[in-house]
Design a binder for these strands. Structure first.
Ligand SMILES: [Mn+2]
Ligand SMILES: [Mn+2]
Ligand SMILES: [Zn+2]
Ligand SMILES: [Zn+2]
Lengths: 139, 139
DNA sequence: TGTAGAATGCAACTTTGTTGCAAAATACTT
DNA sequence: AAGTATTTTGCAACAAAGTTGCATTCTACA
């Protein structure tokens, strides 16, 4: 287990390939969530199809999670440790989209509050996304 | 002001055209939020491009709002009266996506709870989307 | 009724996402 | 360490989604 990327792959029982390592490394060094296109540019030695399939695999294994946005682009981010380890996935933090710099951030410390649904509805997952101006743009 | 669609268009200072009326009628008679593709099918006498441009216009005027989803498809729904009337847009209800029937619903009665962002972040809009099984599918 | 300006349809195009299959790489056995 | 079953990748071809420019048509208003 020389590096973190390999360790993540092995603990998800995935074979270690250079494209998978590269994509995990990209997430590890990114401070924000990434769109498919971002990853495509940062990993341009690999085929577009490979990136689609890799992200799909990572989603299924709970290595990454998606963040819905209002502009029709899904963003992806690494799951935090406890998010991965604890049986099934629960990604219960708020996400922030900066309207100025366009960055998407996991606000890991801001929990999604509990809400009560009308009778008859059952909840399986919940997403909370805030748009606004981020810390860096404001400063 | 013969009908509701015309009345909505006029109060948004938009010229009344048959495609715009048709699209508003589709929203008025829909019980759920609609994807671009849904509207395309229900208004197939009009060009795809017209539908793109019309939805864009309606968004800008606050006639409709978008609902982000995790499957990379934006859904659109009519804004409620107070959402439209009160100066700038505030769409503060929770949305529900049924994993079984695929429908997207505005839960107009479920308000988005207030959250506190970390220092430095300012909020302009907020979205809360719940995935699960809807009332009708559960019954 | 005539006209300026706005909206639409069409064509051409770009971008995004999907699928099948052969070649290459990985993990595992001996 | 070499051989092999299995998985992953790249490529090609395709389908779907979204964009743009421009000529034509429609709408609002004088
Ligand atoms: Mn996150
Ligand atoms: Mn709504
Ligand atoms: Zn920012
Ligand atoms: Zn349902």
């Amino acid at each position: 287990m020389v590096n973190q990327a390999e360790s993540i792959l092995k603990s998800s029982a995935l074979s270690v390939t250079s494209s998978r390592k590269k994509i995990i490394d990209i997430f590890l060094s990114a401070s924000t969530a990434l769109a498919h296109q971002d990853i495509e540019k940062l990993a341009d030695q690999y085929d577009r199809v490979t990136i689609y399939r890799t992200l799909q695999t990572f989603l299924e294994r709970g290595i990454i999670h998606t963040i819905p946005t209002t502009d029709n682009t899904i963003k992806y981010a690494l799951c935090s440790d406890d998010c991965i380890s604890s049986g099934h996935h629960h990604d219960n933090h708020v996400h922030f989209l900066c309207d100025q710099c366009g960055r998407t951030l996991c606000l890991d410390d801001v929990m999604i509050p509990v809400i009560t649904l009308p009778k008859g509805y059952s909840m399986k997952a919940i997403n909370m996304v805030v748009n606004g101006i981020c810390k860096l743009c404001r400063a």
